[in-house]
């Protein structure tokens, strides 16, 4: 019987099953990145840097060369790789604790150097791997295991807005905040990821796509409720926007 392949696992993903919780959007984000690597024919020349956090095993899911950075240091590790092999494609995949708390200095300076790497930044306002502690992006009032009475602005400060911080740095070539809550959002996110990798391939500078995501397990909500909560609470705090685009139109 003959047929056509309408849908399959991207070549840039291994056959290993994801270890993420039910309803977690890491799987969708992984798939989008993998589809772009395949479409742009970059899979064979890509090196990825996984973070410490829920996606610490991402190097096992992507069928590319990869390593795991110390917590927060993914963009420094990626810098070391890229400076050694400037013609390879290098990306980091980091969560909010990794990128915007412990790794803030590396994040800002990598962006400011215009390091020709790409960062996929998953912002779900909580530490997932360690069990639901307060993140730098946790919302004011949000209850976590380390802010059991709700995050208080006068003692813990405010959710940090990574794109808004990075948009003032000249080294950044592509910067967009997207989400994955609806099919339309997913299509937009995929386009953003493509532009980010295009910025790198063209040598334009640093590119980062922030993905506003969910954490059903640690938010204590069902997957569907999580999508709604993200829409109601997260998107007003983290508005979706193209902050920097030095890439222009991409086919």
């Amino acid at each position: 019987m003959k047929g056509i392949v309408a849908f399959k696992r991207p070549d840039a993903l291994t056959s290993k099953e994801f270890t993420y919780c039910p309803g977690c959007l890491h799987g969708v984000a992984h798939r989008l990145v993998a589809e772009i690597l395949d479409e742009m024919k970059l899979t064979d020349q890509t090196i990825m840097v996984a973070p410490v956090g829920c996606s610490v095993f991402a190097y096992e899911f992507f069928d590319v060369d990869g390593t795991v950075a110390p917590h927060g240091r993914a963009t420094a590790v990626a810098t070391g790789i890229k400076r050694s092999l400037p013609d390879r494609v290098v990306f980091t995949y980091q969560g909010d604790g990794d990128l915007a708390a412990i790794g803030t200095a590396e994040t800002i300076h990598t962006a400011n150097r215009g390091e020709k790497i790409t960062t996929i930044f998953i912002n779900n306002a909580i530490y997932g791997m360690t069990g639901g502690q307060m993140a730098p992006t946790s919302l004011v009032g949000m209850k976590t295991t380390t802010s059991p009475y709700g995050r208080k602005a006068d003692s813990e400060g405010y959710p940090i807005h990574v794109c808004e911080l990075l948009q003032n740095l000249n080294g950044v070539a592509y910067l967009e905040r997207v989400t994955l809550l609806t099919p339309r959002d997913i299509i937009t996110a995929k386009k953003a990821i493509k532009k980010a990798f295009t910025a790198q391939v063209r040598g334009l500078g640093y590119s980062l796509v922030e993905i506003v995501s969910t954490c059903p397990t640690n938010w204590g909500l069902s997957p569907v409720e999580s999508l709604e909560w993200a829409k109601q609470k997260m998107l007003p705090e983290f508005p979706l926007k193209v902050f920097i685009d030095k890439v222009g139109d991409v086919k």
Binding site: V49, P70, V77, G80, I81, R83, S84, L85, A105, E106
Partner: peptide, 15 residues
């Protein structure tokens, strides 16, 4: 801190 992690990255490439 960044320097040593850049070392880690470069060393991963066998350079």
């Amino acid at each position: 801190v960044a320097a040593v992690n850049m070392i880690y990255g470069a060393a991963c490439t066998g350079t």
